[in-house]
Structures are given as C-alpha cells and as structure tokens.
Design a protein around this nucleic acid. Structure first.
Length: 283
DNA sequence: ATGACAACTATGAGTTGA
C-alpha cells in the first residue's frame, strides 16, 4: 500500500500533472495541499474518472487541502480544520480511509502548516499557536485512531540535514528552534518521520525556490513530510521523494513524498501477492 | 540591501509563498 503527499500550488493549474502522476503511480492515498480554489471548483469528476474518490476543504486564493483515495477504497468521518481552534484558513482535512487493498482502516490527515513568514512576525505567532492546537488535537486523534498518518507541507525542516545551507539559513523561517521544538512535541506523541526511518541520499529536499536555478543546483528544503504513529511504524517499508514532477513544464515548487506500508492484515492483498501479481504503484 | 519566480486578484500593481 502506498500513501503520498504533494503541495501542488494551485490544483486548477496542476490538475493535468496530478492526473498524469496518479496514472503512473496509482497510490492508495494522495494528500494534496495549496489547492487555491473554492469547494465548488474542486475537480471531483475528473478525479473520479481517474479512479479516485475525494474529500476536500477549499478556500479562495490561498490554502486548501484534500485527500484522494483510490477506488474501490472509501472515505469516512471527515474532519475539516482543528476542532476548537478558530481559523479562517483551510489547512487541515482528516478522514478515516478504507484502502482499496482491503487493509485495515487508517486515520489520514492532510495538513498545510502555516508558513510563518519570519520569526517575530504576527504570522509566526499564528504558526506557533496553530502548532500547539495541532498537538493538542493529535493527542486525542491518536487515542481514538492508533493507525494514524499525518502528512503534508509542514513548512518546517526537522534538522539541518533538511536544509541546503544550514549556516546561511540558521534561525530563518522553516529552520528556527521554536518551529523544530513544536515538531519535537509532535514526535513525543508517538509520531515518526517516515523518511528518516530509512537510509536516504544526502541533500534530499522536497521544495526548491522557483528563482535562482534553485532546483538544478539542488538548493532546497525538506519541508513536506509523512509522519506515522507507533502502531504503523513496524509496517513502514520505504519512503522516498519523487523529484520527477519538479522537472516537468510549469511545475509545482514542491515534489511528492511517497510512503510504502505493508498492509499485511489484508487477506485480499496477501492473496494477490501470493499469486505473484505485480504491484502497480511506483512501477 | 534588494530582487528574482509563480499564482492569485484584478485588469495595475500588490500580496503571499518559502
């Protein structure tokens, strides 16, 4: 079973790329961020024709998140934004996902963490308040749903290995101690950075500035993450960044991140494996 | 020190992102 996250920087502009990517990589769950469209503009029909059902939470111009689930999988118990945290920005969608593979249900969250602009700014204060509310809510979610995946654009580097120029960018936005401490507080709930469970190439990033030839020079940040709960950690088999869409014409500035989970509890999937069926995802 | 690039709103030039 495969789950992925991708900040598409406008779903209206990037829909053809999302459809192309899903055709080549039919993941079971795809979390999207920065839809930049209102709910009435969400391309549910085109995604359904591509074999995906969806839950979405849009907003005009900014933000917006969605969860896509490969059919005949299903989506239930949808939650939009953090309960009890008054927020005019569409940044979180959570749902219980029944995977097409027949695996046990998962609680999946697609999140677009606030950017924060600069340390000391009002937006930075909002980012830290939002992170505290996320932590408090995730504690409850984990108690209710031990099989939990939190993925999205976290807008935070976990450590200096996630930064192309750690000295030059020290204590700048995405790299501050305050932001990283908030991530550590999430980790202490029993969540794990799936990417770092496996050996990875040095200078692995998920975002590159459009300017200054940042992508060809690999001057980026790893700010898009997939974090998994204690219960799912033993099932993780691989996690990687797919840089290919960043090379396409008119790309998002973010690349997708993909997690492979062993859905051993799925009788159907196990039967298929036993009969030697090829895994279509990530072919 | 500033801007670059992209998307959006609006239909100019400004805002936001990271």
């Amino acid at each position: 079973m495969h789950l992925a996250t991708w900040n598409v920087n406008s779903l209206s502009v990037r829909l053809p790329q999302v459809l192309d990517w899903l055709a080549a990589h039919p993941v079971d769950v795809l979390a999207l961020q920065e839809l930049k469209l209102t709910d009435d503009k969400f391309p549910a029909d085109a995604l359904a024709r591509a074999g995906y059902t969806a839950a979405w939470f849009g907003q005009k111009t900014y933000n917006g998140v969605a969860l896509l689930v490969r059919l005949p999988g299903a989506i239930a118990q949808v939650q939009r934004n953090i309960p009890g945290f008054d927020d005019g920005q569409a940044r979180v969608i959570a749902a219980t996902v029944l995977p097409a593979t027949g695996a046990e249900p998962l609680r999946v969250i697609s999140a677009y963490f606030p950017n924060g602009q600069a340390p000391g700014s009002d937006k930075f204060a909002y980012k830290l308040r939002w992170l505290q509310a996320l932590r408090d809510w995730l504690a409850l979610e984990l108690a209710r749903h031990p099989r939990l995946v939190l993925m999205g654009d976290f807008n935070i580097t976990v450590d200096d290995a996630d930064v192309w120029d750690p000295e030059g960018l020290r204590e700048t936005i995405h790299c501050t101690g305050a932001e990283r401490a908030a991530l550590q507080a999430l980790a202490e709930l029993g969540l794990h950075d799936a990417f770092r469970l496996f050996p990875q190439p040095p200078r692995s990033f998920t975002w590159w500035d459009y300017r200054q030839l940042a992508f060809p020079k690999n001057q980026g940040l790893r700010i898009d993450h997939i974090w998994i709960s204690d219960a799912l950690k033993p099932l993780a088999r691989a996690c990687h960044i797919d840089r290919a869409p960043r090379k396409w014409k008119q790309p998002s500035d973010h690349a997708p991140v993909v997690l492979t989970l062993d859905d051993h509890a799925a009788p159907d999937a196990a039967a298929k494996r036993d009969h030697g069926a090829a895994d279509p995802a990530l072919a």
